[in-house]
Design a protein around this nucleic acid. Structure first.
Lengths: 191, 191
DNA sequence: AAACTTGTTTCACTATATGCAACTTTTTAA
DNA sequence: TTAAAAAGTTGCATATAGTGAAACAAGTTT
């Protein structure tokens, strides 16, 4: 029962990361045969083995033992209804901008989606942000002046931009009404 | 290291509950000699054994693992104006669905953003897709029935879902009018 | 002091996890 | 449709976890 849950999780995460048994075997220093038997619940691996696997998959070992309710999280998805978006504070973010997370998934994910609402009136000039990874922005409502390095790019509703966020950047409202953007950030590997 | 932490926790809880090794042995169906070796970190017990211990101590097995340190987490941009979206064909995609790429960046990127337009009338039942990586979908217009494994999830305009695409999935229009979704796909590491 | 409790360790033995290689199944290529 | 390659499974030999009993080394109690 417990082993079954753990086995399923290992397999799911391995698949999500696109590894074969052999590749995970190389990452964990375990034979692919053993990994197969673990995923098929034919053995009860010792802690040391489970630890190797969690390292190979780059997930905290604890998630194998979470007894979380079987919401979508267990199944591998997380829905965020329009009215249920949670306001968040991203590091380095002014209080004036409104960020709403679009994902309830846990931290071992690549995608970090949220909605940013830009008020009509721009307060004090916000500073530019830069960080590793990759970023994508789609204007859902209103229009935006997107500052990227030394350039400013006008983006209207429906326009989008895909860019390297290591260049200092930020958006600011450009219309008579407030604007709304979908933003996707991907962490560039590890920190 | 990990075993040490677990060992210490077991011993601490056992002491707190006032059990001797022999008593815990009776509760768990394990020999006191073994329990001693586990507490002294001389063996790496399998999950099954750890499970017995957690039951005997009446604690959730997860607490042995709850350290929760999250491991890891040119111009460089490409704008796509609303009218300039390029129609594309994704592999394994029926011709009936309309895909529009949102990125002009070169191919070594993580993010693959596009717009999918679902027609009102569903043609022949499309087959489900599965692939490694991660996926995010936001309904821009209309409503969608999102099929994920054996579940079907109704998503209205503004709703979004973040999910593991290794489970077979697909969306289909659910309203009187056509629907439009933003979809972001991330390749799961290797190719 | 002796008797008792608790925990550690040793021994021979059994049960199970592991690596390796052979095998079967699935996927890809042609 | 085949043949070849890749991914996954399984059999076997070995290493390690697990058992029970008993010996040992503490610390308590009377």
């Amino acid at each position: 029962m417990l082993e079954k849950r753990i086995a399923d999780k290992i397999k799911k995460i391995r698949k999500r990361k696109g590894y074969t048994l052999e590749e995970l075997g190389r990452l964990t220093d375990l034979s692919k045969g053993l990994l197969s038997r673990i995923e098929n619940c034919q053995v009860s691996p010792p802690i040391a083995t489970l630890s190797k696997i969690s390292h190979g998959l780059e997930v905290p070992i604890g998630i194998f033992f979470d007894t979380e309710e079987t919401t979508g999280e267990e199944e591998g998805y997380a829905v965020t209804l329009k009215g249920d978006r949670k306001q968040i504070n991203r590091r380095g973010t002014t209080a004036e901008l409104n960020y709403y997370s679009l994902s309830g998934l846990r931290s071992d994910n690549l995608i970090e989606p949220f909605i940013v609402k830009y008020p009509v009136i721009e307060q004090k000039p916000t500073k530019l942000y830069d960080h590793p990874g990759e970023e994508f922005l789609l204007v859902l409502q209103g229009k935006i002046d997107f500052i990227y390095g030394k350039k400013t790019i006008r983006l209207e509703t429906g326009d989008s931009i895909h860019f390297d966020p290591s260049t200092p950047h930020r958006g600011q409202n450009a219309g008579e009404t407030g604007s709304e953007c979908l933003v996707i950030i991907i962490d560039g590997g590890k920190e």
